[in-house]
Amino acid sequence: MGSSKIIRTIAQKLFPFIVLFGFYLISHGHLSPGGGFQGGVVLGTAIILLALSHSIEQTEKKFKSRWLNMLEKLGILTLIFLGFLGIFLGYSFLSNFLPLGNPGQIASGGLMLLLNIAIGIKVAAGVSVIFYALVRYRGEI
């Protein structure tokens, strides 16, 4: 691909920080602006950045679209499972069954953190799969 060495190096060095920021947004979704969807999109853009700076083939070797597809379904199934757990434990669907901590701490939202993580995984995988599909089918149809 035509991208220069500078771009490739910078993208490679930036990658872990973008991923970290994505995880920060996901895990603090119930405390500050952000949440599962926003953090997931940031995680997805990290993969897109790698695919744009390096070649798409190289990125697909690291992040296989089969696994991303799997992760996407796993995210939504986790969400539904957590909802069902509320029913099985005697509350209603999607209700909170975890203890509430002190306000302001990470573990204070009860179920919210787990739901955000599930959504984040789904959105991150979904965004990158959509990007792969757009690149692969470029010029067809």
């Binding site: 199934l77 909802g83 209603s92 669907f93």
Partner: peptide, 23 residues
Amino acid sequence: MVVHIPILIIISPLLAAFLVLLT
């Protein structure tokens, strides 16, 4: 379980939809 019937009616096709993608 009888109390939860309205949500179960919605969730059961939704859950099956995502399980269908896995098999």
